[in-house]
Structures are given as structure tokens and as C-alpha cells.
Amino acid sequence: MRTLSFSRILGLVLLAIIAAVVAFAPLIAPYDPVAASVDVLAPPSADHLFGTDSLGRDVLSRIIYGTRVSLQVGAASAIVAVLVGTPIGLAAGYFRGRVDLVLVQIIDLFVALPGLVLALIITAMLGATVANLAITLGVVTAPTVARLVRGQVFVVREMLFVEAARATGASSAWIIRHHILPNVTRVILGQLAIKVSYAIFTSASLSYLGLGVPPPAPDWGGMVRDGASFLPILPLLSLGPGAAVALTVFTFHLVGSTKK
């Protein structure tokens, strides 16, 4: 019990720090994240705490601004996932029978597929922009949301107040909107942080593979990819943004999994 509350506090503290970095990025970052300089591949120093990259840009500033890009994609795709997944889950759970059978087949089919590979192919087709990444990752995550909602609806639809509403002659649409949806919202919101963490994880992997937010935007996965060739001489160039991804994903996962 004590460890649980500890990880909950840790998660919230880290989340607050990340939120502060997002909000005050221009104040914290010592340099412009996209401004190149002649000071190319400088080792870490008092001027550039994390050194500079191959175009002379300050790595620390890029990591700080990268938080914004990363969270944009993460939050937007989590919202898309919920918007797409919830109606499917509601329909499958509420109407059951044939509707459910068909929807569950489709859901299971997509849950089994490798999300990263799916996202890779879709991003290649649509082109990598922040909006496309958010849509792609949202759609790839939607089946898991649908499955979760469906499970919850199964429980809620058997409850007495739903039965009562049905007995008074309320239509399915009305019952779903006024009785079912409010009762599954809590579960959906609880999953939101986990979905954000998954989206940040996957979008960073996509950028690492070369299909992420296009340059010169400070994007963590892309920074790791570009910095990897300098790993022996300037490890922070790739390990710095890599650690930022790991920490952010960890934070959201912690917040999502310790929530009551």
C-alpha cells in the first residue's frame, strides 16, 4: 500500500515537472531549438550543458522544446483513440449479438497486429506530419479502447437503472447517452494517460525509424536517430533525448496505472 501511494506521488510530481517544461519552454531553454550555429558537435560545457548537434543546435534546448512536440502527438492521438474507440465499444457492448460478433472480430484482428508496423505503413502512405501522426496512432490504439469500453458496457447494461429506463420505453440511443456513457467515462479517462504514454512511445519509435515529425522541429526520436552515429564521442546527443522519451513514457504510465 505504501509503495502504491509512493509511485502515485512520484507520477504526479514528474507529471507536474513535464507540464512546467511544456508551459515554460521558452523561459527554460537557453537557446532557440532550431537556430543553427557554427559551434558544431560541441561537447557538453557550461554554455551548452548537453553539447550541440551536427548543425550546431543546442541539444538541451531541443530536448526541452521536444516535450511540446511529443505531448502534442501523444495527447492528440489519445483523444482520437477515445473518439474512435468509444462508439465502437458502446455499440458492441450494448447491442451484443451479431453486431458484437462482427465488431469483436474486427477489434481482435487489429489488436493482434503489430501497432508499430501498422503505424509505419499508414504514416508512409499519409506522409509524416503532426496531425497525420496523431490520427494514425489514434486509429491504431482505438481497438484497445473499444475492447475496454465493451467490457464495461457489458457490466453497466445489466444494472437495474438501465433496466428501468428500458422498461419506461426509452430508446437505445437515449439509454446509451444518458445511462451507459456516463458510467463508462471514468474507465475511459483512467485509460487516457496510458494511451498518451503508448502514443509517445510509438511516435518516438516511428521518428527513430525515420517516419516522424519532419525536421527541423525538435523531435526526440529523430534526435536519437541523428545522434546515434556520434554515440562513441557525444553520447548525450542520442542518449539525452532517448532518456527524455523514457522518462515521459514512464511518467504517463505511472500516472495511468496508479490511478484509482
Partner: peptide, 29 residues
């Protein structure tokens, strides 16, 4: 078990590319 559970929480959130580069840096470089 407790120790492994804590490590595992970090483990499931660490991206493969970061872990791989970290290993390369420590074990090879």
C-alpha cells in the same frame, strides 16, 4: 518480487531504441 516489479515498470516503458543504444554505449563503447 518487489524489486523485480519496480524494475519491470521501468522496463515496459523504456523504448527499445533507447535501451539498445544504452547497451551499445555501456557494453561496447
Amino acid at each position: 518480487q518487489s524489486l523485480n516489479s519496480v524494475i519491470s515498470l521501468v522496463g515496459i516503458t523504456i523504448p527499445n531504441f533507447f535501451l539498445g543504444l544504452l547497451l551499445i554505449y555501456v557494453l561496447s563503447v
